[in-house]
Structures are given as structure tokens and as C-alpha cells.
């Protein structure tokens, strides 16, 4: 139980372990080695699928009543109990529901430092330095987390994850957690229904404009969206033509969207359209006209023909 250890809270609540946990494990290793500590990974509730978390030095599997499915109240008390044992220097989670549920409260209880929306983290001497993304990404704050215990919630996608999916766990300990008083009980876990269209909640949007040409070509875009696990949206002319229902429209008279990635295919970038998608984190535009205004707001652009480009992407991932 070294005071320079780093804890990663595994945030699996359904399905497999999410990418962000591996990103955090990678970062945890980096920080732990800089501090001269070790990496702990806390798996709460169900131990299922924990084998791939081998990048950690210690794996803690906590089981107990009310811990599975996810229960914010019960998890908080379980993680809190473990942390008092481990006494880590740093606890890492994501700025997602689990991270937000746990970290603020745990930091407040233990009087620790907390930084959220972190996109970068490093050790300088004995202090931890973080860079957080604030004001909806408009400003970055570099901050000093001091030399005491700290909690950090990071924005998913900030750290590389590939390298840390390591199978086989040497050092796993099981813990039983007995909650003192449970004031929250599980009722239901609902997986998304694929019926209702909500382009505002998609992380990735494939968006088509009049350049798509006709109703029949919509299928091509639809296929791309499916393969990418993305939502399908469109500019107004596509809706007006009746090629897609109104719920798919982005822009002034449609929906305002803020996906992580907005892939604009055959959209010129009229102000009314830009109004609805300008805030996407990453905009990639495909338009054969190099002077199209969409390139003024896009981060990446190509003048390739969308009918050449889309099949290529499908080949790359679909196959």
C-alpha cells in the first residue's frame, strides 16, 4: 500500500470493458512509473471479463449485494472502503456517469484534490500537473494538483488505449463488500431502442447534403453510418426532398448537434446549416467544390467525390 500508487476505476456497467478504462490504465502506468508506484484496477460488481485488464499490477475484484448492476450509492461505499485500504496518490476515472457519480463525492469525503475534464496528465517533480478542457472546449486549463492524494476524471479519447489491452492477470484479489445502509436499489437497466432517431445524442454523425443526388443513394450513406456505428443526419434539401425524415435535419430549422465527429458528405456549408453543427469536435468534409464554405469550418477536408470515397471507407472497415 504505497503512497505513490495509482488507482483506475473500471467503469464497465454493461457489455465489455469500455475503451476509456484501457486509456486510463495506459496513463496510470505512465504516472505510476514516474512516481515510483504501482497501478491498481478496481473492478466493482461483476468480475466478468476482467482478464483483459492485465495492464494493472493489482486487480481488485469487489463483489457484494447491490453492487451489480451498477448502483451509484453502493459503488461509492465499496470504492471508498477499498481506497482507504490502498491509500493511493491518484485515482483515475472518466468524465462519464460513473466517474462523475463517484469522484466528486469521494474526493470531498477524503478532502482530496479533484480535476475533471482532463485531457493530459503528467508528473513534475513531486506534483501532478493536469490539463483540463473547459468552457465547452474553448479554453484549456493547466493546473497543479499538488503533492497530495488526487482524483482525476479524464475525457474519453484523450489517451491512447491500444497498447494496454493485456490479457492474463497475476495479482487479483477478491473483496467482499458489505454495505452498511443501502438507500438506493436497482430497478432496471435499459438498453437503447434503435427506433427513435436522436441525432443529437450520437457521437459520430454521417451527414449528407444535396450532393448525395437522389433518394436511392441515401442507402449508401445509411450503410456507411451502420458500419461506423454512427447516426445519419442531413441538410435541409435532403429532408425537403423527402429522402430522409425531418428528425434527421441539422441546422437552423433542424437540430443543433455536437457530436465528436461530423462527417459531411456533399454539403456546401450554408450558414443555416453551419449553425447546427459548428460545435462538433471534429468536422471532416467531403465536397468536390474546393471553394465550398464547409471547408471554412471543417478540420479536415477532401475534394474527392463522395461516391468514390464512401465505398473506400466501407472497404476499409466493412470488410
Amino acid at each position: 500500500m504505497a503512497e505513490n500508487d495509482v488507482v483506475v476505476i473500471a467503469e464497465r456497467v454493461v457489455g465489455g470493458h469500455p475503451d476509456v478504462t484501457f486509456e486510463l490504465l495506459g496513463k496510470a502506468k505512465e504516472i505510476a512509473s514516474a512516481l515510483g508506484g504501482e497501478v491498481h484496477c478496481l473492478v466493482v460488481g461483476s468480475p466478468e471479463g476482467h482478464e483483459c485488464l492485465g495492464a494493472s499490477d493489482h486487480l481488485h475484484l469487489v463483489e457484494g449485494e447491490h453492487l451489480w448492476p451498477y448502483n451509484p450509492h453502493a459503488w461509492e461505499s465499496a470504492v471508498s472502503a477499498l481506497l482507504t485500504q490502498i491509500k493511493p496518490r491518484l485515482v483515475l476515472a472518466s468524465t462519464g456517469t460513473v466517474g462523475i457519480d463517484l469522484c466528486g463525492a469521494l474526493a470531498a469525503q477524503s478532502g482530496s484534490m479533484l480535476a475533471s475534464y482532463v485531457v493530459d496528465l503528467s508528473v513534475e517533480g513531486s506534483t501532478l500537473m493536469a490539463v483540463a478542457q473547459l468552457y465547452g472546449g474553448k479554453l484549456m486549463a493547466e493546473c497543479d494538483l499538488g503533492d497530495g492524494p488526487a482524483f482525476v476524471t479524464a475525457i474519453p479519447g484523450s489517451f491512447a488505449s491500444q497498447a494496454t489491452r493485456v490479457d492474463g492477470v497475476a495479482n487479483a484479489t477478491s473483496h467482499a463488500h458489505e454495505a452498511a445502509e443501502v438507500r438506493m436499489r436497482h430497478v432496471a437497466l435499459t438498453e437503447p431502442e434503435k427506433t427513435g432517431v436522436d441525432i443529437t445524442s450520437e457521437e459520430l454523425l454521417v451527414s449528407v447534403g444535396r450532393g448525395i443526388g437522389s433518394q436511392s443513394n441515401i442507402d449508401l450513406a445509411q450503410e456507411l453510418a451502420e458500419v461506423l456505428g454512427a447516426g445519419l443526419s442531413a441538410s435541409r434539401p435532403v429532408i425537403d426532398q423527402g429522402w430522409l425524415p425531418k428528425a434527421h435535419q441539422v441546422g437552423k430549422s433542424g437540430k443543433k448537434v455536437k457530436p465528436k465527429i461530423y462527417l459531411a458528405l456533399g454539403i456546401s456549408g450554408a450558414p443555416e446549416h453551419l449553425e447546427g453543427m459548428r460545435q462538433a469536435e471534429l468536422i471532416i468534409a467531403c465536397n468536390t467544390d474546393a471553394t465550398a464554405p464547409i471547408f471554412e469550418v471543417a478540420h479536415y477536408g477532401t475534394t474527392a467525390d463522395l461516391f468514390d470515397l464512401v465505398p473506400e471507407i466501407l472497404d476499409l472497415i466493412g470488410g
Binding site: V14, Y70, N71, M184, R185, V187, L189, T190
Partner: peptide, 11 residues
């Protein structure tokens, strides 16, 4: 909970 999954609890 992300990815469209929702969790309902009684508190």
C-alpha cells in the same frame, strides 16, 4: 450510462 443505456434505481 452512455451509449444509450439507462439505469433506473429507487432511492
Amino acid at each position: 450510462l452512455g451509449g444509450g443505456v439507462t439505469l433506473t434505481s429507487h432511492a
